[in-house]
Measured scan of single mutants.
Amino acid sequence: RNRTTFTSYQLEELEKVFQKTHYPDVYAREQLAMRTDLTEARVQVWFQNRRAKWRK
């Protein structure tokens, strides 16, 4: 699989949710996936990576 390149809009939306919660539930991830036109799996992985970056 190729690396996903996120648009500025997608990143904005993802970051907005990340500010509210670092662990969005499956419903929140589904909503976000629909809004950003990404798969729920991509959203889930983005949050995993974002949490790792945040911990550093």
Score class of each variant (00 low, 15 high):
residue 35 R to I: 10
residue 39 T to N: 13
residue 33 A to T: 05
residue 31 Q to G: 09
residue 52 A to F: 03
residue 40 E to H: 10
residue 40 E to C: 07
residue 38 L to A: 05
residue 44 Q to N: 14
residue 14 L to S: 01
residue 36 T to A: 07
residue 12 E to G: 11
residue 35 R to L: 06
residue 27 Y to G: 12
residue 52 A to T: 11
residue 15 E to W: 04
residue 13 E to P: 00
residue 9 Y to P: 03
residue 24 P to M: 02
residue 8 S to M: 09
residue 13 E to T: 07
residue 3 R to E: 14
residue 25 D to R: 01
residue 13 E to K: 03
residue 17 V to T: 12
residue 10 Q to G: 03
residue 19 Q to V: 11
residue 39 T to I: 03
residue 2 N to V: 08
residue 19 Q to A: 12
residue 53 K to R: 11
residue 2 N to I: 12
residue 55 R to P: 08
residue 56 K to H: 08
residue 25 D to T: 06
residue 41 A to D: 11
residue 31 Q to R: 11
residue 40 E to N: 14
residue 2 N to R: 05
residue 9 Y to D: 08
residue 6 F to L: 11
residue 45 V to F: 15
residue 4 T to I: 15
residue 23 Y to L: 03
residue 7 T to R: 04
residue 40 E to G: 07
residue 15 E to P: 00
residue 53 K to V: 13
residue 6 F to P: 04
residue 29 R to K: 07
residue 5 T to Q: 15
residue 29 R to S: 06
residue 8 S to E: 15
residue 23 Y to M: 04
residue 28 A to S: 11
residue 48 Q to V: 10
residue 40 E to W: 03
residue 35 R to C: 08
residue 36 T to W: 05
residue 39 T to C: 11
residue 3 R to M: 15
residue 45 V to Y: 12
residue 9 Y to E: 11
residue 38 L to V: 04
residue 3 R to I: 14
residue 54 W to T: 09
residue 7 T to G: 05
residue 17 V to L: 14
residue 39 T to D: 12
residue 17 V to I: 11
residue 18 F to D: 00
residue 28 A to Q: 10
residue 18 F to E: 01
residue 51 R to T: 02
residue 39 T to H: 07
residue 11 L to Y: 10
residue 9 Y to C: 09
residue 23 Y to V: 05
residue 19 Q to T: 13
residue 27 Y to W: 10
residue 28 A to D: 10
residue 4 T to R: 01
residue 23 Y to K: 05
residue 28 A to P: 00
residue 25 D to E: 04
residue 48 Q to N: 07
residue 15 E to K: 01
residue 38 L to F: 03
residue 55 R to E: 11
residue 3 R to D: 15
residue 3 R to P: 13
residue 12 E to L: 04
residue 42 R to M: 15
residue 7 T to H: 08
residue 24 P to G: 01
residue 50 R to A: 10
residue 18 F to S: 03
residue 25 D to N: 04
residue 16 K to S: 08
residue 44 Q to I: 07
residue 11 L to E: 15
residue 25 D to P: 04
residue 53 K to G: 13
residue 15 E to V: 02
residue 22 H to L: 05
residue 27 Y to T: 15
residue 56 K to G: 14
residue 46 W to P: 00
residue 37 D to N: 15
residue 33 A to K: 07
residue 53 K to C: 11
residue 43 V to Q: 02
residue 45 V to G: 13
residue 1 R to S: 15
residue 34 M to H: 07
residue 39 T to W: 02
residue 45 V to P: 01
residue 22 H to E: 09
residue 21 T to P: 00
residue 50 R to H: 04
residue 39 T to K: 02
residue 34 M to S: 12
residue 38 L to I: 15
residue 19 Q to D: 15
residue 7 T to L: 06
residue 11 L to H: 09
residue 18 F to Y: 08
residue 35 R to P: 02
residue 37 D to P: 02
residue 37 D to E: 11
residue 7 T to Q: 05
residue 44 Q to W: 04
residue 27 Y to H: 15
residue 5 T to F: 09
residue 20 K to Q: 14
residue 28 A to W: 04
residue 10 Q to C: 03
residue 2 N to M: 13
residue 47 F to K: 02
residue 6 F to G: 03
residue 51 R to W: 03
residue 39 T to Y: 01
residue 53 K to L: 12
residue 24 P to H: 01
residue 19 Q to R: 09
residue 26 V to W: 10
residue 47 F to Y: 03
residue 44 Q to V: 11
residue 30 E to S: 10
residue 12 E to T: 07
residue 55 R to A: 13
residue 9 Y to I: 15
residue 34 M to T: 10
residue 25 D to S: 12
residue 17 V to C: 14
residue 4 T to V: 07
residue 14 L to F: 07
residue 43 V to E: 01
residue 42 R to F: 10
residue 52 A to D: 08
residue 46 W to M: 02
residue 31 Q to C: 12
residue 10 Q to N: 03
residue 5 T to D: 15
residue 31 Q to A: 12
residue 11 L to D: 12
residue 33 A to F: 02
residue 38 L to E: 02
residue 18 F to R: 01
residue 15 E to H: 02
residue 15 E to I: 00
residue 28 A to M: 12
